[in-house]
Amino acid sequence: MALLEVRDLQIHFRTATAVNRAVDGLSFDIEAGEALAVVGESGCGKSVTSMSILGLLPTPPGKVAGQINFRGRNLLEASERQMRKLRGAEISMIFQEPMTSLNPVFTIGQQIGESVRLHENASRAQAHDRAIEMLRLVGIPSPERRVDEYPHQLSGGMRQRAMIAIALACNPALLVADEPTTALDVTIQAQILDLMQDLRSKVGSAVMLITHDLGVVAEFAERVLVMYAGRKVEEAKVGDLFRTPRHPYTQGLLNAVPKLGSSLTTAEPVRLAEIPGRVPDLSKPLSGCAFADRCPRAQEVCRRIDPALEAKAPGHFAACHFSPREVSAA
């Protein structure tokens, strides 16, 4: 049994005029200790998926259906009280914007200690010691001093480290990181990615990394899940995905990113491969494949029959009628 099993997850939102199908029929697993990346462009449903795992979506206007089984228990049926016990202790989350997710009126130490005291019944002194220990672990210099500082006294990179310290304070089994480095500069991003990789091996948490940055995926993840318009279009080991992307959307994405060092080979400027058009409106019903309108390979059948996710190679799944299959159904 996987640590987290998501089955047929649907997250819909009702607006004044329509129902927005933000996530529509998503299934995936995360094994214990694994690093899974979820990539996709804005509006593909990757962030709401992570919010739904922690039970943080406002319902209504949202509605979540399907199953999110964590250690075999369906979180969608858990009470708010049970979820509170789980959040921070077994499943933690890191957000994109460290400044807004830290509470400005409490010290860093208090915020790290809070979850320790809440979930492990630690005393104030124990919590304080644990906070210092965590700050040292995430590489914040002079943690004895920093522990009593407020978020605004830390730099952006330091704040993200503090966020990670809070998230990891109770050794969670699953860490959900929603664009954890997007707001950071490249040199700081490199630090944070190294830190997360390092901590993953030390603490042994599984990490679900939500990002739009294919570079970050390649550096960090073991397995990748590509989302488009609320659906999973491809899933594979990171090496396989980058070597042989099997869904036209993934191929398009990989070709559209300018790559460091790639333009130097030619004197004339190269055009980037574009994906024409724009993402479909999720508040209107989609027939067939969600990517059909932008897909270079689309045929008439793609607009009629919604392609199922099929194993195209061992451990490599794609939802495309015309992506060649290397194995006969694994």
């Binding site: 490249v186 040199t187 991003q189 490199a190 990615l193 940055d213 294919l214 570079g215 970050v216 995926v217 390649a218 550096e219 990171v238 090496g239 980058f242 070597r243 990989l254 990113v257 790559k259 460091l260």
Partner: peptide
């Protein structure tokens, strides 16, 4: 340092 910090979309590199 800036160049080496950019994550490359290529896990083999």
């Amino acid at each position: 340092a800036l160049l080496s910090a950019v994550p490359l979309p290529d896990p083999s590199a």
